[in-house]
Deep mutational scan, measured.
Amino acid sequence: MTEYKLVVVGAGGVGKSALTIQLIQNHFVDEYDPTIEDSYRKQVVIDGETCLLDILDTAGQEEYSAMRDQYMRTGEGFLCVFAINNTKSFEDIHHYREQIKRVKDSEDVPMVLVGNKCDLPSRTVDTKQAQDLARSYGIPFIETSAKTRQGVDDAFYTLVREIRKHKEKMSKDGKKKKKKSKTKCVIM
């Protein structure tokens, strides 16, 4: 069974824990209790493949930012979460993405942009803004509501699919490099 290491990042209060708990335990946590770091595991079937999701729910508070490099190193894919009623959390996505790329030393890291709290009427981040940002990053965008469960499975499952595509691409690139290195030079 394939294991996928997913990391949920975003500013404090955007609903990272609520999304994760909704996926794992099928219930909505409405009281806000700032996370330092929590880890969850769940076995699911995605596109006919049974897999184990190892999900790291991270601290959004700035005082825990020193811990970010460590979990970013171990993560295979990242859910970059903002709240649709919090423009600052949307603007912060850029910083999370840049930090992930720096730590992973790669421009090509599996990510999904997630606009959470889409059940709320007080939207300050337009869907088109988020779609445009995701398009500019070359990553999928999904709106979710941890409260109603809308888009929750889709967000995590899409990230797994992005990781699969990335692994497939990397193995193809690896095979191309191996083929090239088999060419021999004969000096007579």
Rank of each mutant, 00 (worst) to 15 (best):
T2C: 06
E3F: 01
E3Y: 03
K5A: 02
K5Y: 01
L6K: 12
L6I: 11
L6E: 09
V7P: 01
V8A: 03
V9M: 14
A11R: 06
A11P: 08
G12K: 04
G12L: 01
G13I: 01
V14H: 06
G15Q: 01
G15R: 01
G15V: 03
K16L: 15
K16Y: 01
K16P: 01
K16N: 15
S17H: 01
A18H: 03
L19F: 14
T20V: 04
I21W: 15
I21E: 00
I21C: 08
Q22F: 06
Q25P: 00
Q25R: 06
N26K: 09
N26V: 02
N26H: 09
N26W: 06
H27Y: 05
H27I: 10
F28H: 05
F28Y: 10
F28W: 11
V29P: 03
V29S: 03
D30P: 08
D30K: 05
D30Q: 04
E31S: 11
Y32T: 14
D33F: 02
P34I: 15
T35P: 04
T35D: 04
T35Y: 15
E37I: 02
E37V: 03
D38T: 00
D38A: 00
D38R: 00
S39V: 09
Y40L: 05
Y40C: 01
Y40R: 00
Y40D: 00
R41G: 00
R41V: 00
K42G: 02
K42C: 03
Q43E: 10
Q43T: 09
Q43N: 06
V45L: 06
V45C: 09
I46L: 05
I46Q: 15
I46D: 11
D47V: 02
D47N: 04
D47F: 02
G48R: 06
E49W: 05
E49M: 10
E49P: 10
E49Y: 08
E49D: 07
E49Q: 10
T50I: 06
C51W: 08
L52W: 01
L52Y: 02
L53D: 01
L53A: 03
L53T: 06
D54R: 00
I55W: 15
L56M: 13
L56S: 07
D57G: 00
D57Y: 00
T58S: 13
A59E: 02
G60F: 13
G60W: 13
G60A: 14
Q61H: 04
Q61T: 05
Q61G: 03
E63W: 01
E63P: 05
Y64V: 04
Y64H: 13
Y64R: 05
A66F: 12
A66W: 05
M67A: 05
M67H: 05
M67R: 03
R68C: 03
D69L: 05
D69R: 05
Q70R: 04
Y71S: 15
M72C: 11
R73Y: 10
R73S: 12
T74E: 15
T74P: 05
T74S: 11
T74C: 07
G77T: 03
G77M: 09
G77P: 02
G77S: 01
F78W: 05
F78Q: 13
L79K: 01
C80R: 01
C80W: 01
V81Q: 09
V81I: 14
A83L: 05
I84L: 13
I84M: 15
I84S: 15
I84P: 15
I84N: 15
N85D: 08
N86A: 07
T87R: 13
K88A: 13
S89L: 03
F90Q: 12
F90S: 12
E91H: 02
D92V: 03
D92S: 13
D92H: 01
D92R: 11
D92W: 14
D92T: 07
H95V: 04
H95W: 04
Y96R: 08
Y96W: 15
Y96H: 05
R97A: 10
R97P: 01
E98F: 02
E98P: 03
E98R: 10
E98L: 01
Q99K: 12
Q99F: 14
K101W: 09
K101C: 13
K101Q: 04
V103N: 07
S106L: 10
S106H: 07
S106Y: 11
E107N: 09
E107L: 12
E107F: 13
E107I: 10
E107K: 11
E107G: 10
V109A: 09
V109Y: 07
V109I: 14
V112N: 00
L113Q: 05
L113W: 13
N116E: 13
N116L: 15
N116A: 13
K117S: 14
K117M: 14
C118A: 10
C118L: 08
D119C: 13
D119R: 14
L120T: 13
L120S: 12
P121Q: 11
P121H: 11
S122T: 11
S122C: 10
R123M: 12
T124L: 08
V125H: 12
V125S: 11
D126H: 06
D126A: 06
T127W: 06
K128A: 05
K128H: 05
Q129F: 14
A130P: 08
A130Y: 11
Q131P: 08
Q131G: 11
D132N: 07
D132R: 05
D132Q: 06
L133E: 04
L133W: 07
R135A: 06
S136Q: 14
Y137R: 05
Y137H: 06
Y137P: 11
G138C: 04
F141L: 05
F141C: 03
F141R: 03
F141I: 10
F141G: 02
T144F: 15
T144P: 15
K147V: 03
T148N: 12
R149L: 04
R149T: 12
G151Q: 13
G151M: 06
V152R: 13
V152F: 10
D153F: 08
D154I: 06
A155M: 14
F156P: 11
F156W: 05
F156C: 14
Y157A: 12
Y157R: 13
L159P: 02
L159M: 13
V160T: 03
V160C: 12
E162L: 08
E162K: 11
E162D: 08
I163V: 04
K165V: 11
H166T: 12
H166R: 08
H166I: 10
E168M: 14
K169H: 03
K169W: 03
K169G: 11
K169N: 14
M170R: 12
K172G: 08
K172R: 07
D173L: 11
D173W: 05
K175S: 05
K177W: 04
K177S: 07
K178C: 06
K179R: 08
K179N: 07
K180V: 13
S181H: 05
K182W: 02
T183C: 08
T183E: 11
K184W: 01
C185H: 02
C185V: 14
C185A: 12
V186H: 13
I187Y: 10
I187S: 08
M188Q: 12
